[in-house]
Simulated scan of single mutants.
Amino acid sequence: MNRTMITATNTLSQLQKQMDIISNNIANIDTNGYKRRDSTFTDLVAQEFRNQPHDRLEQNRLTPFNIRQGTGAKIAQSQIVLSQGSLKTTERSLDTAFTAEGQMFRVLAQNSDGSSAVRLTRNGAFYLSPLSDNETMLVNSDGHPVLDESSRPITFTGKPTNITVSATGTITASMPNGSKQEANLGVVFVKKPQFLEQKGDNLLGFPDNLDALGVTENDIITEMAGPERGGISIKQGALEQSNVEMSKEMTDLINVQRGYQFQSRSITLADQMEGLVNGIR
């Protein structure tokens, strides 16, 4: 395999990853609160060959000294874009939507190994799930418990007849006997979204190697509790749509497919050239 094939193969694998990212964005265009990912490319390490024994022999050269030969390109970063999505009015009391960028709800999700972990989401479609005859829990559309500002599941004693959510994230349940129960929704502000990973079910979480990355959870998010709750901006009776733009994603997909075709063509041409060389007698 010659260098042309190696360079093209390296780039092809990365273009396939970018195609997967774009396809995932398109597949979630109707997912409430979904945030798209954008990927950027960078060159792989290039090799430099000295074509002259001394730099003085390169006098009057306008290009950099020596000969540089690349080895392809790779995805430098795949980052979540937290731009605001459009709001869809539902008039449903348990539907909530953030009207400010970077804010997310906290939910408690189950891992594949049976353990639990705190996850983040912008999907504010909530439901009441009965725990017993006299107790209900606030959950998201996948049944994961919604957490309060103290990271505890939000539960109500009795069967609420009405639910209201304030602009600063205080949920109030009115009971048949006229009493009211309140809880503060757990909300965080994401400062460094590039460190968040998609964990499935439209949930985001922290990477497992935070220590190796040299960051802590507090470097990535800010807990919006206490005085910080005044900055929360929530609208009741509405849901945030995804921030995926179909026209942009389709344009990006076409560009990636063209790049994929060019790299595949490079491999074909390199193979034909080797065939010609091997055929020389």
Score class of each variant (00 low, 15 high):
residue 52 Q to K: 07
residue 227 P to I: 05
residue 39 S to T: 11
residue 38 D to N: 14
residue 178 G to I: 11
residue 185 L to A: 09
residue 115 S to D: 13
residue 52 Q to T: 08
residue 195 F to W: 05
residue 25 N to Y: 08
residue 50 R to T: 01
residue 266 S to W: 00
residue 165 V to T: 14
residue 68 R to D: 07
residue 269 L to H: 08
residue 12 L to G: 05
residue 237 G to D: 09
residue 279 G to K: 07
residue 114 G to Q: 10
residue 98 F to I: 05
residue 161 T to Q: 14
residue 226 G to T: 06
residue 182 E to C: 02
residue 186 G to Q: 12
residue 215 V to H: 04
residue 15 L to N: 03
residue 272 Q to E: 15
residue 167 A to K: 12
residue 160 P to Q: 09
residue 241 Q to V: 04
residue 83 S to Y: 06
residue 263 Q to K: 08
residue 29 I to K: 09
residue 248 K to A: 11
residue 272 Q to T: 14
residue 28 N to M: 06
residue 253 L to D: 04
residue 60 N to G: 05
residue 260 Y to F: 14
residue 130 P to H: 10
residue 205 G to T: 02
residue 45 V to N: 14
residue 233 S to Q: 15
residue 195 F to A: 12
residue 268 T to H: 02
residue 221 I to H: 12
residue 95 D to T: 11
residue 225 A to I: 05
residue 98 F to C: 13
residue 90 T to W: 07
residue 231 G to L: 08
residue 238 A to S: 15
residue 280 I to L: 15
residue 127 Y to D: 11
residue 129 S to V: 02
residue 112 S to T: 15
residue 118 V to S: 04
residue 150 S to L: 13
residue 191 K to S: 10
residue 252 D to M: 05
residue 54 H to T: 10
residue 93 S to N: 09
residue 63 T to D: 11
residue 240 E to K: 01
residue 99 T to Y: 01
residue 118 V to T: 05
residue 188 V to S: 01
residue 168 T to W: 00
residue 88 K to P: 00
residue 100 A to R: 11
residue 219 D to N: 10
residue 228 E to N: 15
residue 279 G to R: 09
residue 187 V to E: 11
residue 120 L to T: 02
residue 241 Q to L: 07
residue 40 T to Y: 02
residue 14 Q to I: 00
residue 96 T to P: 02
residue 99 T to C: 09
residue 120 L to K: 05
residue 69 Q to G: 02
residue 58 E to D: 08
residue 87 L to T: 04
residue 52 Q to L: 00
residue 178 G to S: 10
residue 275 G to P: 07
residue 226 G to P: 09
residue 4 T to N: 15
residue 111 N to F: 13
residue 132 S to D: 14
residue 164 T to P: 11
residue 189 F to D: 14
residue 262 F to R: 13
residue 143 G to P: 12
residue 153 P to C: 02
residue 134 N to E: 10
residue 99 T to P: 02
residue 214 G to C: 06
residue 207 P to L: 06
residue 50 R to H: 09
residue 39 S to A: 15
residue 225 A to Q: 11
residue 191 K to R: 15
residue 64 P to V: 11
residue 55 D to A: 10
residue 221 I to Q: 05
residue 242 S to W: 04
residue 103 Q to W: 02
residue 94 L to I: 06
residue 124 G to S: 02
residue 189 F to V: 04
residue 199 K to T: 13
residue 37 R to D: 12
residue 234 I to P: 12
residue 215 V to W: 00
residue 180 K to I: 06
